[in-house]
Amino acid sequence: MAQHPTGHSHDAHAHGDSHESHGSLKSYVIGFVLSLVLTIIPLVAVLNDMVEGTAARVLLLVTAVLQFVVQLFFFMHLREEKKPRWNLMALILGLVIVLTIVIGSIWIMTYNKVA
């Protein structure tokens, strides 16, 4: 327990520090403003029926994903992780599985609709 996790002790240090040395007020403000903009665009466009149907769905999903990316970079400081990027790898794998669950379920259940 107490031993130093030496396999990657320098990484561990670097990682622990990343939240201290980085993440300036500027990055939080930029992130916040971008999030607000990315929330307002779909609200205005969809609720006023400026886009409809598939186009609206695409717009909604794209802005949502962009906002996710914004939060990852400006709030969670994912970019500043030092190598090896375990957190990033875990996240990507997790997202692949999430997409598999959602898309796979939709695909499989298309043929098994009951209402």
Partner: peptide, 10 residues
């Protein structure tokens, strides 16, 4: 496993 290996154990 990722973080607590003895030094040198790549």
């Amino acid at each position: 496993i990722l973080k607590m290996r003895a030094p040198g154990m790549k």
